[in-house]
Simulated scan of single mutants.
Amino acid sequence: MTARTVDDLFVHSLSDIYSAEKQLTKALPRLARAATNEELSAAFMTHLEETQGQIERIDELVEGAGIRLKRVKCVAMEGLVEEGREQIEEIEKGPVLDVALIAAAQKVEHYEIAAYGSLIALAKQLGQNDAVRLLAETLKEEKATDEKLSLLAEQKVAAEALGK
């Protein structure tokens, strides 16, 4: 990546998160199938729908701002998805795997929260108010998903894994 300007950096970062979201749309159904807790499985499917909306929001942003995304692969998301895949393969299906899936999903959420926060800061510097609005909407969803996962872990899944 050669970024000479803040605008270049913004386009690259937007292209990267677009790739991340696309990868996530493939990973979330796998997480939902691996989960044994029904609420967790449903949470993954709900987040899949949100992720598809977030991709549409990026498409809207790109079209409105006349941006052309770069063809990049988000290696950070690739690694996070692979880590989740390994856990599915290595941990017996049940409450312990559910805890691991929540942890893996929260790592993804924290990555996305950081990425969208940075994109918002860049968009503000560039005076792209529509982009700020669209990205802030996605950031709010990512934070809400992280919070839902925390509550699910604390109130249900961890207790199941501990046999309580």
Rank of each mutant, 00 (worst) to 15 (best):
T2A: 14
T5V: 05
D7A: 05
L9V: 01
F10T: 02
S13V: 01
S15I: 11
L24T: 13
L24S: 03
R30V: 14
L31Y: 15
A34L: 06
A34S: 12
A35H: 05
N37F: 06
L40W: 04
L40K: 07
A43L: 13
T46N: 12
L48Y: 14
E49S: 04
E49N: 08
Q52F: 03
Q52C: 10
Q54A: 02
E56S: 04
E56P: 03
E56V: 05
D59A: 06
L61C: 00
L61E: 09
E63D: 14
G64Q: 08
G64E: 07
G66D: 09
G66I: 07
I67G: 00
L69H: 10
K70A: 08
K70D: 08
C74W: 04
V75A: 14
V75P: 09
M77F: 06
E78Y: 12
E78S: 11
E78I: 05
G84Y: 10
R85C: 04
Q87D: 13
I88V: 07
E89N: 05
E90Y: 11
I91Y: 07
G94R: 08
G94E: 00
P95H: 00
D98S: 06
A100N: 04
A105F: 00
A105K: 02
A105R: 07
I113E: 14
Y116R: 01
I120M: 00
L122Y: 11
Q125T: 08
Q125G: 12
Q125H: 12
N129W: 14
N129R: 15
N129H: 13
D130T: 12
A136Y: 10
E137D: 12
K143M: 08
T145V: 13
T145M: 10
E147G: 09
E147A: 14
E147P: 03
S150Y: 12
L151S: 13
Q155W: 14
Q155V: 14
K156T: 15
E160G: 05
E160N: 11
E160H: 13
L162G: 12
